[in-house]
Simulated assay, not measured.
Amino acid sequence: MKTFSLPDLGEGLHEATVVEWYITNAQAVSQGTVIMAVETAKAIVDIPAPEDLFFIEALCPTNALVKVGAALFTYRTTEDKIERHPPSATTSVSVVGSLVEANTTASTQHFILGKDRFNTDEQRQAQQNLSASTRLLSISSDRQPQQLTGARLSMSQHMTHAQQTVALVTIFDEVYVKQSSPQGILTQVINGLIASCRQSPLTNAWLIDNSLIVHEHIHLGIAIDSPHGLFVPVIPKVDTLSERQISEKIKELKQQTQAHQLRAEQLQGATITVSNFGVFAGRFATPMVMPPQVAILGIGRLYRHNTLTNKGDIKTRLVIPLSFSFDHRALTGGEAAKFLATLIEKLQTPLSRRSNKKPQV
């Protein structure tokens, strides 16, 4: 009998979640037939039969999180002989089996650590407290907990690492834009971000081992929410694209994200990120910087504000709330504030003065 283990998935991935088994026990399988599917932080991967085999048993249930190298299933090749010597019903075939036989009454007994130190009344009170806690837990837990898997597990791990690593600071501001429609705001903000990164190049950098790596081009991460979790696909060299090209690329990435069709290479290499959380709700937030990046820009929910002009007229303007988070280990407060000031200045520039041509690099 042979055991098949989870192979190296590459790209720095060390674990996966079992999504589905396509084969049942005691089934003959041809080489290349898909036996199971697992989900990594990047994608869903089918695992085929490594050779012609007779499937014996799945060792991991659906939704189980398994590490690279962990046993997935057992099988025998079509050339193996079937052993017909089943173990005796009264004899244990493993250490675990021996332990179970030796402790057949363990599941029906209740033990209190250090009970010899307490008198009978104290032991009885402790047992009553334990029973009350158990009943309360059973009442409050009316639903089974859902194990984090795939993209959501990856998000949890990355966010935990970021929270423990980054010296996070967020500054907030708002900008009036001379536009009657909120359509196309994201593209305008990205163009302003490009100008701000050129003015403050340290914001378009990676912090690795106390070294700041400043990038020549801007590889922009776009945070996109989906039913599968949060994804941040990257637009490489966004500073070389026109507004129309940027808009088309964002639309394409959104469609791929919702369809769960992003490739692993599309999620790598971001030098700065934009989160347009305001499309759902909220004017301001504290977006988390994901190492090795040192900055992320959040766009809040747009709203209209009435202002009084010098002539006494009431004018309605569109307002964009901005939240700029940065890693204070890499950037000073002044550098972050200058970035945001440049962005506000660019967004306030009348549309007629902006060029839709490809930026010069």
Rank of each mutant, 00 (worst) to 15 (best):
A89R: 13
A89I: 15
A89Q: 14
A89L: 14
V93T: 14
V95A: 10
V96Q: 15
V96P: 08
G97V: 04
G97I: 01
S98Q: 11
V100W: 06
V100M: 09
E101D: 13
E101H: 15
E101V: 08
N103F: 00
T104H: 12
T104S: 12
T105E: 07
A106I: 14
A106F: 13
A106T: 14
S107D: 04
T108R: 11
T108W: 02
T108Q: 09
Q109P: 04
H110L: 05
H110T: 11
F111L: 14
F111H: 12
L113F: 06
L113Q: 07
G114Y: 00
G114W: 01
K115A: 13
D116W: 02
R117D: 01
R117E: 01
F118M: 07
F118Y: 13
T120L: 10
D121V: 12
Q123Y: 06
R124G: 10
R124T: 15
R124M: 14
Q125R: 15
Q125C: 08
Q125G: 09
A126N: 05
Q127V: 12
Q128R: 14
Q128D: 15
L130Y: 04
S131G: 03
R135I: 11
L136E: 13
S138I: 08
I139C: 03
S141M: 05
Q144I: 09
Q144E: 13
A151P: 00
A151M: 06
R152Y: 00
R152C: 01
S154M: 00
M155R: 11
S156D: 09
Q157Y: 02
Q157G: 05
H158D: 12
H161L: 10
A162N: 15
Q163G: 09
Q163S: 10
Q163Y: 05
V166N: 04
A167C: 08
A167Q: 06
L168C: 02
I171H: 00
E174M: 01
V175I: 05
V175K: 04
V177N: 00
V177A: 02
S181W: 07
S181H: 09
S181I: 08
L186Q: 12
T187R: 10
V189N: 02
I190G: 10
N191Q: 13
N191V: 14
G192M: 00
L193N: 10
L193D: 07
I194F: 10
A195I: 11
A195Y: 09
C197I: 13
C197S: 09
R198S: 01
Q199W: 07
S200G: 10
L202V: 15
L207S: 01
